[in-house]
Measured scan of single mutants.
Amino acid sequence: EVHFESHGEEQAMRVVKMLKKRNLTVEVKVENNKWIITAK
């Protein structure tokens, strides 16, 4: 499981795309203006 924190939507979306290319399940949450990305 991979956790990634991002402060910007643009950066977060880039990471999500990259993770999805690896056929991982990606969950995105926004907490306290931080984008929290979890990949399994």
Rank of each mutant, 00 (worst) to 15 (best):
A12K: 02
G8T: 15
N33I: 03
K21F: 11
N33S: 06
E1P: 10
I36W: 03
Q11F: 10
E10T: 08
K17E: 14
E5A: 05
S6Y: 15
S6C: 15
T38M: 06
M13C: 14
E10S: 10
V26R: 00
W35L: 04
K20S: 07
G8E: 14
K34Y: 06
R14C: 15
L24N: 04
I37M: 01
V2C: 15
E27S: 12
E9C: 15
I36H: 04
K20A: 08
N23Y: 15
I37H: 00
E27H: 11
E10R: 12
N33T: 04
E1Q: 11
I36T: 05
V28R: 00
M18G: 04
V15I: 15
M13R: 09
N32L: 04
L24T: 03
K20G: 05
M13W: 07
T25Y: 13
E5V: 14
T25A: 09
T25R: 12
M18L: 11
K17R: 11
A12F: 04
K40G: 05
E31T: 05
V2G: 05
E1F: 13
K29D: 02
V26E: 00
N33M: 06
K20C: 14
R14E: 12
E31H: 10
M18A: 11
N23A: 06
H7M: 12
S6F: 15
K29M: 07
V2E: 06
R22P: 03
R14V: 08
E10M: 08
E5Y: 10
E9Y: 15
R14S: 07
N33Q: 06
W35D: 00
M13N: 07
K17C: 14
G8K: 12
A39W: 14
A39S: 04
K17L: 13
V28H: 00
I37Q: 00
G8I: 15
K20D: 03
V28T: 02
H3N: 06
N32V: 04
F4T: 02
K21V: 05
Q11M: 10
V30P: 01
G8H: 15
K21C: 13
K17H: 10
S6M: 15
N33P: 01
A39T: 07
V28L: 08
K29F: 09
K34C: 09
E27Y: 11
E27K: 07
T38R: 05
V2Q: 07
M18W: 14
V30H: 11
A12P: 01
S6D: 02
A12S: 02
N33H: 07
S6N: 03
L24Y: 15
K20L: 14
V28E: 00
H7N: 11
S6E: 12
K20I: 12
N23K: 09
H7Y: 14
M13E: 03
V2S: 06
V2M: 13
A39Y: 09
N33C: 09
R14P: 00
V2F: 15
M13Y: 06
L19F: 05
V2A: 05
R22T: 07
S6Q: 07
E5M: 08
I37S: 00
V26Q: 00
G8Q: 14
N23F: 15
R22F: 15
M13T: 04
H3L: 13
K21T: 08
K34G: 04
R14L: 11
V28G: 00
W35Y: 08
K29T: 10
R22K: 11
V16P: 01
V28P: 00
